[in-house]
């Protein structure tokens, strides 16, 4: 175990059964079908850093996030947070204590709140559930403190979720996440539903809170510019596999995997006014029937026979035969 690692994810796998119902299978003689949403993903997150997973839709990044927080049991592999296994039954008691310190922030804050509860009750729920503070007055005070922390007013505790704008609701969601003295926050596209000016407010808030409270983040996003702004280290996912992992400077400054390069080149950016370009052709293949070997090979300009046959291993942060063999210029 590497020193300073707070979250360790090893060879994480998740297979979903997407077969037709039993009767259809019998009548149509159709075999079972499975979808490998996550296929052998491993990474570590150090305490106090922001690790970001980027990828296009269907790359498995949200599935990884859900397995890390324990919302979804992995098919194989292991997640360890603060040296406690999230799967080992012998560590169940320790895991229960740890759970309070892991919280998730979702894309749509409205969907993750009970519309009939006042915001004060929503934020107080983890405090009551984990029995962190006794006494109504003390809980109320803590809720007010949390609201102030995320830039709202303590009086907002009396309002209902629908009385807030999208950005304010996301602030409430962050306050609720922090209510249980969380130290590890997993954000699954936390700003994707927000307008840019509001997104800037939330991203700034998340960074301020990280500095003040020493939080560790796992940040999931499809938006590379947002990831570049937030992350310390980045993992790029494609069809359930990590294709490249590295610190921010490497991923954005010297990307090595052809997919990372393509992705960076494809992002429309303010700096590229009127840019003419030749975009990479093709789309993400159907994950039920992925290409053999390296899953990126049908879209890759450097693919050869080995790429079509053999799955590349993550070596020194890149899973690519062309990089490994030195066929790709830096």
């Amino acid at each position: 175990m590497s020193a300073g690692a707070y979250v360790e994810v090893e060879d994480l796998r998740r297979v979903f059964d997407v077969s037709k119902p039993w009767l259809n299978r019998v009548i149509e003689r159709a075999p079972r079908q499975t979808l490998k949403a996550v296929d052998g993903v491993g990474f570590t997150i150090r305490r106090g850093e922001t690790f970001a997973l980027v990828g296009e839709s269907g790359s498995g990044k949200s599935t990884v996030a859900r397995m890390v927080v324990g919302l979804l049991p992995p098919s194989a592999g292991e997640v360890r947070i603060a040296d406690i296994s999230m799967t080992d039954p012998r560590q169940a008691a320790a895991r229960r204590r740890l759970r309070a310190r892991i919280q998730m922030i979702f894309q749509d804050p409205y969907a993750s709140m009970n519309p009939r509860w006042r915001v004060g009750a929503i934020i107080a729920e983890p405090i009551r559930a984990f029995n962190l503070i006794q006494g109504e007055a003390a809980i109320r005070e803590r809720v007010g403190e949390l609201l102030r922390l995320v830039g709202l007013h303590p009086d907002d505790a009396r309002k209902y979720p629908h009385e807030f704008s999208g950005g304010q609701r996301q602030r409430v969601a962050i306050a609720r996440a922090l209510a249980s003295q969380a130290e590890f926050l997993v954000g699954d596209e936390p700003t994707s539903a927000l307008d840019v000016s509001v997104q800037a407010q939330i991203l700034n808030l998340m960074r301020d809170l990280q500095d003040r409270l020493g939080l560790t983040y796992l940040f999931i996003s499809h938006n590379l510019a947002v990831v570049r702004h937030m992350a310390t280290r980045i993992g790029v996912m494609y069809l359930g596999r990590l294709v490249e992992v590295g610190d921010k400077a490497t991923i954005f400054g010297r990307p090595r995997h052809p997919y990372t390069r393509m992705l960076l080149d494809a992002v429309p950016d303010l700096a590229h006014i009127g840019r003419a370009r030749t975009p990479v052709s093709g789309e993400i293949p159907n994950p039920i029937d992925p290409p053999s070997g390296c899953t990126f090979n049908p879209r890759c300009p450097h693919a050869n026979n080995r790429c079509r046959a053999e799955v590349p291993k993550l070596i020194d942060g890149v899973a690519c035969h062309a990089v490994e063999e030195g066929r790709l210029g830096a």
């Binding site: 704008s165 950005g167 304010q168 307008d195 840019v196 000016s197 509001v198 997104q199 800037a200 407010q201 991203l203 700034n204 960074r207 938006n223 590379l224 510019a225 947002v226 570049r228 702004h229 954005f252 960076l264 992002v267 950016d269 303010l270 700096a271």
Partner: peptide, 24 residues
């Protein structure tokens, strides 16, 4: 001006994004 500053880009080096207080 606020809107352009609020957008994270692939080339900026700013630590903080420009923040427009409030909402529309």
């Amino acid at each position: 001006r606020g809107l352009m500053g609020a957008i994270p880009t692939l080339s900026d080096t700013a630590e903080r994004l420009t923040q427009i207080p409030g909402a529309m």
